Amino acid sequence: MARANTSSSSTAALAIFLLCMTLFGQSYGQLKTGFYIGKCRSNNVEQVVFNVVNAAFQRDRTIVAALLRMQFHDCFVRGCDASLLLDGSNSEKTAGSNGSVRGYELIDAIKAALEQRCPEVVSCADIIVIATRVAVFLAEGRWYNVETGRRDGFVSSASEAQRTLPGPTIPVPIAVDIFRRRGLSADDFVLLLGGGHTVGVIHCNFFLDRLYNFQGTGRPDPSMNRNTLSSFIRTCPRSGSNNFVFADQTPRSGLRVDKGYYQAIRQGKGVLQIDQQIASHRLTSATVRRLSVTGDFAFQFGGAMVRLGRVGVLTGNQGQIRKNCRRRN
């Protein structure tokens, strides 16, 4: 227990140092690092977020995967405008493709802490991005400087989310094209998919077809590693279940943001069809190979997250700063 407390204290101390190092004015359009400096009385907004996320991480390390999924699912539909957080009978969070998204209560807690210190200053869209960076760092990922200055959107549609978010069987060329239309490269696609799948779990119902009836053949996916297939079949019966497997099948890597995912899919251990496809497709295989054998992922993932965070942002006088992330003002 003493070792765990020491490790946690060291991580927090390093985070404070890194937060201080971000206090300068680099900008991208109207987004910039350190946007909230001097805007929240004497409070360091990013430190407030860090403290709330760190407490949640100590209780549940799977919050990392939850926040990574949340940022991707928010940014990919209408841009990074926190539309995913809005409640409503037909809001984005009610879409089937968002059924696995969680972490809303953590965002609520962060928002409440910030509203207490400086009401109507920090957007929910920025909270998602800052909180995700903290979670990546706590899961042994490399620290990256987030850009802030986003404002929150008004529109949230389940049908839009359902038709916009890419599914687990999407072909690689179509996925690459979807990312490019959002200003993201093929490398960004591989980095973001890998970052999202390097932590967390995937429930059996999302890949049962690969185990028992791949593309209607009545047989397993031939690209799957035989030992991995046997393990998955033991966990995921044909009749279905609520069981799950780690998205990253590298031993001892399932809760760390590292390159283990790329090593696993090169061995045929990808869980979803898209995982295995990027390891062999001509548009992505070279990137997967490079990330699996070098230290590039640690340095490049943060950059891909920053670029994701620029998609479709509202800034300046656009949108609003919500008082409550679940509803419009």
Rank of each mutant, 00 (worst) to 15 (best):
V311P: 03
D258Y: 04
R61P: 00
T294E: 06
H73T: 10
G141S: 11
F301T: 03
A264M: 01
N243C: 07
N145D: 01
K39T: 10
E105D: 10
N44Y: 03
D188H: 09
H197K: 10
G79S: 02
T315C: 00
F301H: 07
L193A: 12
G240W: 07
V129W: 04
F246G: 08
G218P: 01
C80R: 14
L31F: 06
C75S: 06
F207K: 14
L208D: 09
V288F: 08
E105R: 05
V134Q: 06
H281A: 09
R117F: 02
Q267G: 02
L255N: 13
V134W: 02
Y212S: 05
Q249L: 08
S123C: 06
I130F: 02
T62P: 00
E105N: 14
G153W: 02
F297D: 07
A112S: 04
S100G: 09
L19Y: 14
D188Q: 09
C75E: 02
G96Y: 13
R117D: 06
Q276P: 01
I233P: 05
Q71V: 05
F17W: 09
L308S: 08
T217E: 07
T6K: 14
T33E: 06
E46K: 15
E115H: 07
T148Y: 05
S27E: 09
V48N: 10
A113P: 07
G195H: 05
G79N: 00
G303V: 08
T33Y: 06
Y28T: 09
Q249I: 12
H203T: 12
Y261C: 05
T228R: 15
Y261V: 05
I233M: 15
T235E: 07
N51G: 01
Q47G: 07
V121G: 10
A298D: 08
R69F: 00
I16K: 06
L192Q: 12
F207I: 08
I174W: 14
R327P: 00
G303D: 06
A4W: 15
Y104H: 12
G29M: 02
C236M: 11
S7G: 11
N43C: 00
C325R: 06
Q215A: 10
T250C: 08
L211K: 15
I174G: 08
F50H: 15
L138S: 13
D258S: 14
C20L: 12
T235A: 12
L138W: 07
G194L: 04
L229T: 11
V306M: 04
V121F: 13
V52Q: 14
R252G: 05
S156V: 04
E46M: 12
A158P: 00
C124K: 10
R210K: 15
P237T: 14
G88S: 10
